[in-house]
Structures are given as structure tokens and as C-alpha cells.
């Protein structure tokens, strides 16, 4: 079973690498924001799987916090780009 988790970790890491290309090369700031949001969502899944691979249950708390931080960060950045300010 641990092998399957390892393979899943590897596939998610590869997809994160693919998205990173769009984050580096993508034209314009919106493509980069989208790529960062996508990498964040993949990171949640990766953290949950890694919790089983390393047998550390604390990873789930980190995943929960990461989900919230990713969501709020994306919302704030989108708002900033839309209005040119944060109020």
C-alpha cells in the first residue's frame, strides 16, 4: 500500500511541475495567479498523501490550514488585481 501512495505522490509532483511551467512562462499576471492557485490545490492532496507515506498525522492539520490560506490568498490577490487596492 505504501508503494501506491509513493506512486501517487510522484504523479502529483509531476502535475505540479507541469503547472509550474504555466506559472513561469504564462503571459500576463492572471495566468500566473491561476497557476499558483492550481499548485496550491494540488499541494493539499499531496500533503494528505504524504501524511500516510511518512506516517505523521500532523500533516492533515497542515493540509487543512493550507487549504484555507490558499483560498484566502487567491481571493485577496484577485481583489487586488481587480481594484488596484485592497479596500
Amino acid at each position: 500500500m505504501i508503494t501506491i501512495f509513493w506512486i501517487a505522490c510522484l504523479i502529483i509532483a509531476v502535475t505540479m511541475g507541469l503547472s509550474l511551467y504555466r506559472g513561469v512562462a504564462g503571459p500576463g499576471v492572471f495566468n500566473r495567479t491561476a497557476a499558483v492557485n492550481v499548485i496550491g490545490t494540488k499541494t493539499i492532496a499531496l500533503l494528505v498523501i504524504m501524511g500516510y507515506y511518512f506516517e505523521r498525522p500532523h500533516f492533515f492539520d497542515i493540509a487543512l490550514l493550507y487549504a484555507m490560506m490558499n483560498f484566502i490568498g487567491t481571493l485577496v490577490f484577485a481583489k487586488y488585481l481587480e481594484r488596484g487596492g485592497l479596500c
Binding site: T41, L64, M68, N70, T74
Partner: peptide, 25 residues
């Protein structure tokens, strides 16, 4: 239960974030 809440949160938060970026663009 924590993981179930995480699934629920992802299903609420991800469409909202997508919508926010799209509206900004």
C-alpha cells in the same frame, strides 16, 4: 472527520476562487 471537512471545504472554496480570478480578469 477532518478529512471529510477538507473535502467539503475544497468543493466550496475552489469554484469560488476560480470565479474570483475570472471576475478580476
Amino acid at each position: 472527520a477532518k478529512l471529510a471537512f477538507l473535502i467539503f471545504f475544497v468543493f466550496i472554496a475552489n469554484p469560488t476562487a476560480t470565479h474570483a480570478i475570472m471576475k478580476a480578469a
